[in-house]
Design a binder for these strands. Sequence first.
DNA 1: CACCGTCGTTCTGTTTACAGAACGTTCTGC
DNA 2: GCAGAACGTTCTGTAAACAGAACGACGGTG
Lengths: 169, 169
Amino acid sequence: MELAQEVGARLRGLRRHRGLSLSELARRSGVGKGTLSELETGRRNPTLETLYALTTALGAPLSTVVGPAPVQGAAVHAVLTDRVQDAAAVSEVYRVRIQSGAVQRSAAHAAGTTEHLLVFSGTARVGPACAPLKVGPGGHARWAADVPHLYEAVGGDVEGVLVVRYPVA
Amino acid sequence: MELAQEVGARLRGLRRHRGLSLSELARRSGVGKGTLSELETGRRNPTLETLYALTTALGAPLSTVVGPAPVQGAAVHAVLTDRVQDAAAVSEVYRVRIQSGAVQRSAAHAAGTTEHLLVFSGTARVGPACAPLKVGPGGHARWAADVPHLYEAVGGDVEGVLVVRYPVA
DNA sequence: CACCGTCGTTCTGTTTACAGAACGTTCTGC
DNA sequence: GCAGAACGTTCTGTAAACAGAACGACGGTG
């Protein structure tokens, strides 16, 4: 099953990233070593309890393994954390990291689309390609995204939240 | 087990909210009716596959049932969707709904704490108790949260995203 | 009142996720 | 080279999650 493989791969990624062996994680989480092996290779369909035990032992929220997959562009790495629909618009909330050393350009979105960026760290140059805005830590930018726009980190990488708000079709 | 009960209650809430009967959801999701009954009462520890089938049939993301629990105040209903820590600060991202007809007051947070509100729908009156700001749909407000502050919906309810950013201790 | 549909729960047999053991492999150090 | 340890995979028996059937409890209709 496809979902199990996706989740398994993420679990393996998390474990490796922490430098834990399979046996060590099994010991810490109380999940059997064999179980863990088959989970990571996507050959099992894990139980909620098992997933919870593993993510807790890994110090990660459950959403890390069951949440949406990150999208990676030229410079922007984004994870959809929320999506809200009201009468007028659909709003998507992304956790973003803009990597320095590259500029990511985006084509115009549907008419009426706006974007917001809240910057946590670093300084970003974002917005309409013709008139980008500069935003530092703790800052906020808002621009119309129905024209070509760009994302760029000035100096070091940028961490923040991007909200894309587009009218309902 | 506690987690299973929590998830079960959320599933039942989602189903009821959509006006679906247990049998109907079972039919649409392909999950057995008995299975569903025991899941909702927290007597079973669901499989990832089962949870996915159910949330898909309910038209909700998986995170709705496994994500963090919402916090409810006098007027503000908030769900923590993300939490980011960098060298300077911790940033928490909340999906919020401010209900009209009440004012929620918050005491001063740690020095240097700032808050941002992005409004999706409705009009909000938020910020320092001494000088609140008015924000409409698509708008943004930012204020220092190290003084007493408030949240209020003007007219109808407000939907949006709240970001709380406080310095690392 | 009896009939029938729908509701949610409980029962029944099958499938499978689980813990732990056994296994082959790859590094160490003596 | 051969112990010993650690790694990840595969095997084995048990517990439990699953689909579907059977069940009792309501609520409407003739």
